[in-house]
């Protein structure tokens, strides 16, 4: 078990250190990369729990998807020499208070919960089980959230198209096209 503990402490330390670095870094892309490390370490925790599906989802959605998108938008918008201004006193005070409140809340909740040691070894979750519960309409089925997500995606797509379309007519009145 000692190997597991070492891994756990290593991953936790990585999560904490890189979370702090994400917040205090003054270069935007570095912050994004530290965030990537946090997310990858989190998925490492899931792997330790033998819940590989969630770990892989964490990797695809967050590390492979969200962080890539963030980096992409950073690449499009900012220059390499750009740096954040150090936050003002008021701002940092507020952030500190918010962070402290969150930390205290979660620590209290965790301490409140009675962890019971179980002898059951961590079980590998079967792919079929995940698939079936994702598409089941029973009590613990996920088909409704699944559908809701697809509606949300549809809405996002429509909105994206609408935004892209909106700038269309404005551009057709550009001077060069009149020349043509």
């Amino acid at each position: 078990m000692i190997a597991n503990q070492i891994m756990f402490f290593l991953l936790s330390a990585m999560i904490i250190v890189f979370s702090i670095l994400t917040v205090i870094s003054r270069k935007i892309l570095r912050a994004a990369i530290y965030l990537l490390f946090v997310l990858v370490s989190t998925s490492g925790l899931y792997f330790m729990l033998n819940y590989q599906f969630l770990a892989a989802v964490q990797l695809t959605v967050y590390a492979g998807g969200i962080v890539v998108l963030i980096i992409f938008s950073i690449l499009l918008t900012s220059h390499i020499s750009q740096r954040f201004e150090p936050a003002g006193l008021k701002k940092s005070m507020f952030s500190a208070i918010a962070a402290l409140t969150g930390a205290i809340l979660s620590i209290v909740t965790i301490l409140d919960y009675k962890f019971e040691a179980t002898a059951i070894a961590a079980k590998e979750v079967d792919m079929r089980l995940i698939g079936k519960s994702l598409l089941s309409v029973d009590y613990d089925g996920y088909v409704l959230p699944f559908e809701v997500i697809s509606v949300l995606l549809l809405a996002a797509m429509v909105a994206a198209i609408a935004i892209a379309k909106k700038s269309g007519p404005a551009k057709t009145q550009s001077p060069t096209l009149k020349q043509e």
């Binding site: 551009k171 057709t172 550009s174 001077p175 060069t176 096209l177 043509e180």
Partner: peptide, 8 residues
């Protein structure tokens, strides 16, 4: 292409 390049 011409649309986009008008924004200089």
């Amino acid at each position: 292409a011409k649309d986009i390049i008008t924004d200089e």
